[in-house]
Design a protein around this nucleic acid. Structure first.
Lengths: 234, 234
DNA sequence: CCGGGGTGTAACACAACGGTAACACCGCTG
DNA sequence: CAGCGGTGTTACCGTTGTGTTACACCCCGG
């Protein structure tokens, strides 16, 4: 389950850039344009972290932050504030209000991602301890590293995502279409046979040095990850 | 224990097509024509997933989605939205409202089925617990494996589908024509005798090692699966 | 006990499917 | 702008699966 981040800002452009980057970094993202919407959104589904613009229409960021701290069940939500200027007094006020961190505009999307991860690591380490493991394969999602029995395996981005899907459901057979849907962008129109090619590349990387095959081909059905290795001989 | 799907759309034609396909895919289906009916239906019996048209009379799809998310006991129901155009902003809004996936009209029934399964797999894996069992035979549909008394049986695609049909209705006799209709593509023109050949191949695989026959031949009628084995002597 | 529809079986041709390598392209970076 | 790594597509090939057919066999009724 991806951590859910709520971004509150009145600039659509900023929202979209940030959304794009956070989703790429493995977060789920909701956005609202002002403080009221934000509180409604929080009431509907409590996010794991809130990014709040300081200057908001109707209700100020600070006020929203206070509300969050006051409501039941939401006091513990980490908040990161976005301020327009690097004024020291703003920083102090932000942190006094209960914000966990702050960032001055303009900032790079990567910077925000980094701060979010830092805050979450401090407050909810479990959320980021993103590792998938099955059999002798271990994937560390945050550092994007893959190990087979301790040894590092280097994978390209597509192979990484592909392995992740397979690994998350050991034994389950995925059709090429399912894989295209989950590993690739929806509405990306890719040839089903392309999946084969990536499976091959993934296998090549995983089995380097003549190790046991871990990906089972199911004729006319698809591919599956087998933690214990694929039966070779009949 | 079929998963219950609620479809909300004002077009009867669409409802019927979708219903037909979903029922064939093993779902139970309820339909309503507008948002109010939908909420009533949900109150009466909570479905496992809702498919919502974006444009509905009286209450919009988005609003229905919000209501669902607000009510007690229904927040977790996955929702798939149907939108008329492939407008990016609609997609964003749909997902923001709490939809789990979306589909742009027109779509093929198979596409919807696939998305429903994908969403359920993600949110309620247990619902799709794909296993068919009868007597000493067990088929795990998700991993595409077949066991007889614990031992793995390897089957080819056609044999797999054939066994599945027989297994799902133990004791029932299927004519060659029925089997051709269900196991093969609808408009595939196959010789009825071909069924015999596949039954033989299936038997051979199932009975490897001199085990009891499980498929009964009914003269002038067809074949049936017998969980307890076929009586050899009269 | 003979005959005929119905089924079991093996053999064969070919169609389908997946593995693989080669290539073109694209976006980056130096 | 050349080089490079990553990605998607395609074509080829071997393997495996599938449909058809021919023939043997069996059961059952005349």
């Amino acid at each position: 389950m991806k951590p859910l981040i709520l971004i509150v800002d009145d600039e659509d452009a900023l929202l979209e850039i940030v959304r794009y980057n956070l989703e790429r970094a493995g977060f789920e993202v909701t956005t609202t344009h002002d403080g009221e919407e934000a509180l409604t959104a929080i009431a509907e589904r409590v996010p794991d972290l809130v990014v709040l613009d300081w200057m908001l229409p109707h209700v100020s960021g600070i006020e929203v932050c206070r509300q969050i701290r006051r409501l039941g069940g939401t006091q513990a939500i980490p908040v990161i504030m976005l301020t327009a200027r690097s004024d020291e007094s703003d920083k102090v006020r932000a942190l006094n209000t209960g914000a966990d961190d702050y960032l001055t505009k303009p900032f790079s999307p990567g910077e925000l991602t980094a701060r979010i991860q830092a805050v979450l690591r401090r407050t909810r380490p479990a959320l980021l301890a993103d590792a998938v493991r099955s059999g002798e394969i271990e994937m560390d999602l945050s550092s994007h590293r893959v190990f087979r029995g301790g040894e590092t395996i280097s994978l390209r981005p597509v192979e990484f995502r592909l392995l992740r899907i397979l690994l998350e459901h050991p034994g389950r057979v995925f059709s090429r279409e399912q894989l295209l849907d989950t590993v690739w962008d929806r509405d990306a129109e890719i040839e089903p046979r392309t999946v084969d090619v990536h499976v091959r590349r993934l296998r090549k990387a995983l089995n380097a040095g003549g190790r046991r095959e871990l990906i089972r081909t199911v004729r006319a059905a698809g591919y599956a990850f087998e933690p214990e290795g694929v039966d070779e001989v009949a």
